[in-house]
């Protein structure tokens, strides 16, 4: 379903974030992407979610080549992914409810159906009673969970999480990892970038200075 073939990503300015990376991820897999800070984990996830395009090599998503796709087609590709960003990217001038409702609005889901799904997503992450709260009034962990709720609300085929446990204590981190596993168990492909794969159970993709050393944990 996701296939990288000798993918190199060079950012403007010349920095090579990924070097000739080749791998394949099948539907329903649970994959951890590990590596030191600056190894290229976020870059890899952005390429997978069609947010960035490769400099050389090919990225195939469901056999569609992201590198050659029209710009106008990218939004529809992106909707297949529930993305949890490293910096959350929550909207601080909107309530928790409205933040989670955004992907649904983009997808054209509205009204009562949207409300139902937003509440279901908030319930999943334990924030149902905070739907009216503004993100700024939520703790760091709650914000993280709000970001997760937004990623799962449109029931994506692939969940992509960039360091979702980055600033959480280990209990929280454990809960969230359990949540991801539960999604994986119902068939969702889950990709998690993390700098410590201590308790990771699943396939590992390890990055070192942009190069892939598959299955070799840090």
């Amino acid at each position: 379903m996701i296939k990288f073939d000798k993918v190199t990503k060079r950012y403007p300015g010349g920095h090579e974030a990924l070097r000739s990376v080749t791998f394949e991820i099948a539907k329903g897999e649970l994959v951890y992407i590990t590596g030191h800070s600056g190894a290229g984990k976020s870059t890899l996830l952005k390429l997978i979610a069609a947010i960035e395009r490769p400099t050389t090599g090919t990225v195939l998503l469901n056999n569609q080549n992201i590198g050659t796709l029209r710009r106008a087609a990218l939004p529809y590709i992106r909707r297949n992914f529930g993305m949890i960003f490293q910096d959350h990217k929550l909207l601080y001038d909107r309530s928790a409810f409205d933040n989670v409702a955004l992907p649904l609005a983009i997808d054209g889901v509205a009204g009562r159906e949207a409300g139902k799904r937003v509440r279901a997503a908030l319930d999943k992450v334990g924030l149902l009673n905070r739907e009216k709260a503004m993100p700024i009034a939520l703790s760091g962990g709650e914000q993280q969970r709000l970001a997760i709720a937004r990623a799962i609300v449109s029931r994506p085929a692939v969940l992509v999480a960039d360091e979702p446990t980055g600033n959480l204590d280990s209990n929280y981190a454990h809960d969230i990892m359990a949540l991801f596993r539960s999604f994986n168990e119902v068939g969702v492909t889950v990709l998690v970038a993390t700098h410590d794969a201590g308790n990771a159970e699943g396939r590992l993709l390890h990055l070192d200075h942009g190069a892939l050393t598959e299955g070799v944990p840090a």
């Binding site: 979610a49 939004p75 909707r79 990217k89 992907p103 983009i106």
Partner: peptide, 13 residues
């Protein structure tokens, strides 16, 4: 920010 996030999660122009 709203525009940026919307684009990242699949909003059309």
């Amino acid at each position: 920010e709203e525009i940026e996030v919307s684009k990242l999660i699949g909003a059309t122009d």
